[in-house]
Design a protein around this nucleic acid. Structure first.
Lengths: 368, 368
DNA sequence: CGCAGTTACGGTAGCGCTACCAATTAGGGT
DNA sequence: ACCCTAATTGGTAGCGCTACCGTAACTGCG
């Protein structure tokens, strides 16, 4: 007797726990999912049985039997860029201590791929979705609106979220860093980018508007705008064509040739800002006296460079983390949270834009 | 009639496909998983029905009914460091086009946490496991040996893998970069590290042995060794205490104080090498003439720095990618693959260690 | 032509869990 | 005492899929 079917693997099931605790299986199920539904006495018997048997629920069975799973789908446009590594770290830190599972999808900045992944994930009836950006196409948006689960858009801001958006304004970030460059005393300010996505474009718009308002706009100081699907991320670990330190060095050369009066540049990311710094070093251009440099994102390296590099600190980890926390609140039944959360950004004013030595007199590390 | 139960969500099931194709459900199941078992004629009918109904298999049901799932558990010690972002990118690239799903766990360099995560993942009956490092504790190792699925250890090398190991020798990497520094003409070579794990220790051992063989070993030029559990990775996105560019600048100052003769340093990672470069700039120490700098990992920034920074290129993306490919081969029934795969490393000889201008005469980017 | 061996397909019975409904008990008001 | 509601517990019937076994048709061979 007592021969277990070959189909099981001998691990205790909810029925084993129920038998040991002397209750019905369904009561165990309830005690596990919502202990308040079960009386104190039974709950303790069940807890004891669970512990003694070392019972672990079978998530597949749970998912099959119930209408929802504990999977959170997270879509990012790239894993190559450190930005989204930070976001994912925030996400993983956010699920620590919950029973949520993360399923990551990489859209490769391709909206068809994004659409496909959204469809695939929604079919798994996820507990929630976290998706980077606010620029989903119409079909993706419709799918998400009808998903029947919380959908959090991150790393950007919009008045019209699918459900909830948690991020910051790239346009305002572009404005803020440009204002800083102007205040620091630069007059011929350029913009240097490799490949641009919708968020980069927002930052560029912020720069352009601010420069125009100041009567300092000069299109020759803006590198050609490359959008669309980025160069495929290669197997050999090379990154997207221009958006590298080396690419930035070449692009800077081009800008200086186009208009030698250029005296500052806002780079689309930190890597390119570093590349610009190194190009300046090689050319003997003094930073910040002759030339100001600002990056975007503010990775660690910016503070450590010499001169230290100004940048805009973006809430990457925070975006991922807050998104998960918002999701968890929603799953706990709290529907009251705000639909638009602005995490802000921080203009980090450092040596590379300190043209007149103001920082030495007032060496704050950065200001909000 | 025809009222669907409230428990379903209206999506087509295998039974719907079977009905439409005029076959039994089990035949559809077979046609989906192993088409060779089904005759050409039926296979086509089934394929058509699948397409018309837009049928997508329910993975939870499949997992519940069968003995194995399509989940691959991936354990990394950290998500903070770019190293493992690259590994994960290789992993995700490797599963593209298969039906494998990735489940990531972060051990935070804590072996108890690692043990817990291994147990938790194995309970889900994964198709395979990929785990960073070869230094699992005894209980973890036992669990993995009895897992009944392929287990790939990555990012290190050992003669005695649990199952298969794919990586490179940190010890040999330490030897190789040290030989390079000696050949470049440096005589007082130090080692700079923040926090050390077992792989860092391997590199340090390679350096130490090589220096001793050359009669050049000087313990004062080695920063204090900090091991054990690293400082907890904070919510505020700060990284582990010393292993940052800024930390490196302080540590370098300490070493120079301990023995001013120091003329080169091998840094435990690229960030610290950059920090050292910036510290040298500020102090007016000429690189590479007065001082040689080498990093480890060879992230993009090393090539773009000025002077460009020597480093050891580690196969991070490749480790993740090859691990998944090996796993896929195993899951396809190919048991013949090697149990130890050395992906090698590459000493990237660049400006920061080019004391005598050899690179200018022979400007190869690096040599294997 | 009969028989074993093979191939192609289908039916049945779960996998472990939970939705749904029923049953039982307790408490509160009249 | 009674009815009515709420709280607690259990039984039944799936969720969608596949392991296992059975059946039927086909093959080759003596």
């Amino acid at each position: 007797m007592n021969l277990r079917s070959r189909r099981t693997d001998g691990r205790p099931t909810i029925a084993d726990v129920a038998r040991r605790a002397g209750v019905g299986a369904i009561t165990v199920s309830r005690a596990l999912r919502d202990p308040t539904q079960v009386s104190e006495a039974l709950r303790r018997m069940i807890d004891d049985a669970v512990r003694e048997l070392n019972y672990v629920p079978n998530l597949n069975a749970r998912a099959l039997a119930s209408i929802r799973t504990d999977v959170v789908g997270v879509l990012v446009p790239s894993l190559t860029q450190n930005i989204f590594s930070d976001v994912l770290r925030g996400v993983y830190d956010g699920v620590d201590g919950s029973n949520l599972q993360i399923q990551v999808g990489n859209t490769h900045y391709n909206e068809d791929e994004e659409e496909r992944l959204i469809g695939q994930m929604l079919r798994q009836k996820p507990a929630g979705m976290i998706i980077s950006g606010t620029d989903q196409n119409a079909r993706s948006r419709t799918m998400l609106e009808n998903a029947g689960c919380p959908v959090i858009q991150i790393m950007d801001l919009t008045d019209d979220p699918i459900d909830t958006v948690i991020g910051f304004s790239h346009y305002e970030a572009g404005r803020a860093i440009t204002r800083h460059l102007i205040e620091a005393g630069y007059r011929n300010i350029g913009f240097l980018s490799g490949w641009m996505n919708s968020r980069s474009l927002g930052r560029l718009a912020g720069l352009t508007d601010t420069l125009k308002e100041a009567g300092m706009y000069n299109p020759k100081l803006i590198t050609p705008i490359v959008t669309g699907q980025p160069v495929h991320e290669h197997k050999d670990e090379k990154k997207m064509s221009f958006a590298t330190p080396l690419g930035a060095r070449k692009l800077l050369s081009g800008l200086l040739e186009a208009d030698p009066r250029m005296d500052a540049v806002f780079c689309n990311n930190d890597s390119m800002a570093l590349g610009v710094l190194f190009e300046c070093m090689q050319r003997g251009i003094r930073v910040p006296e002759d030339f100001g440099i600002a990056g975007f994102n503010d990775f660690d390296i910016m503070e450590a460079a010499h001169p230290s590099l100004s940048s805009v600190r973006s809430p990457r980890w925070e975006s991922g983390h807050e998104a998960v926390l918002a999701l968890r609140r929603r799953l706990d039944g709290d529907e009251a949270g705000p639909k638009v959360v602005d995490l802000g950004f921080q203009v980090m004013k450092r040596g590379s834009t300190d043209r007149h030595g103001g920082l030495a007199r007032n060496p704050a590390r950065g200001t909000w």
